[in-house]
């Protein structure tokens, strides 16, 4: 008869091990839940050249992580009948966006009746700038001969489409496409999105 491993109960060791398992469980469980909710916007999302869209977020079909993330920030999602918001947290090279650097946003957007580009500072607030420029939109932007555009994001004045910012730690760029045929994940993969190139940094 094969000998089974013996689990003779030694009270002190048992309590210590049980305690260890509970600490491990609570720590890992809460820690991973916190991290997952902090990054809840990334679950069930589509990334197109660094721009991230989550068409299901903020709807009854949302996954539990993005539902938790939305509940914490209190934000509301654009409805599919309105349009689609795409958020960039990183430049085209993959570096986090920061107000300490200049950026050039260049290229074209997917088809939409109207689009707006705005910038969020730390804490998901609209960038407050003294010049009253809160964003660009498809009807006021200066375009190149081929219809593409080029926006320079900088703390100091630039010619052309200049988006003035403050030198905050984090930046997020938000491109909203209104009345667009692009509202579901499967139609998004091949889209042409503007690139975000980093320029000089402070």
């Amino acid at each position: 008869m094969p000998s089974l491993p013996s689990f003779r109960i030694r009270p002190v060791r048992f309590v210590l091990e049980l305690f260890g398992a509970i600490v491990l469980g609570v720590g890992l469980g809460l820690g991973s839940a916190y991290l997952a909710v902090e990054n809840g916007h990334l679950v069930d999302s589509v990334a197109i050249s660094g721009w991230i869209a989550s068409p299901n977020a903020g709807t009854p079909e949302a996954d539990p992580y993005s539902a938790a993330a939305f509940a914490r920030t209190g934000e509301v999602a654009l409805g599919s009948g309105e349009g689609l918001a795409l958020i960039a947290e990183r430049d085209s090279a993959g570096n986090l966006l920061t107000g300490k650097c200049d950026y050039v946003i260049a290229g074209n957007t997917p088809p939409a009746r109207l689009w707006t580009l705005s910038i969020l500072e730390d804490g998901w607030r609209s960038a407050a700038n003294p010049r009253g420029r809160v964003g660009f939109h498809s009807k006021d932007i200066l375009r190149e001969a081929d219809g593409s555009f080029r926006i320079v994001v900088s703390t100091s004045a630039k010619s052309g489409n200049w988006f003035p910012i403050r030198d905050t730690e984090r930046l997020r760029m938000v491109l909203r496409l209104y009345d667009t045929p692009v509202t579901s994940g499967s139609t998004m993969i091949e889209l042409e999105m503007p690139t975000i190139e980093r320029g000089a940094c402070i």
């Binding site: 398992a21 509970i22 491990l24 469980g25 609570v26 720590g27 890992l28 469980g29 997952a36 539990p64």
Partner: peptide
């Protein structure tokens, strides 16, 4: 056991 507990706590808290 600890990891399973972590899984339960993760799901419930999210």
């Amino acid at each position: 056991g600890g990891v399973m507990l972590a899984g339960i706590i993760h799901i419930v808290s999210v």
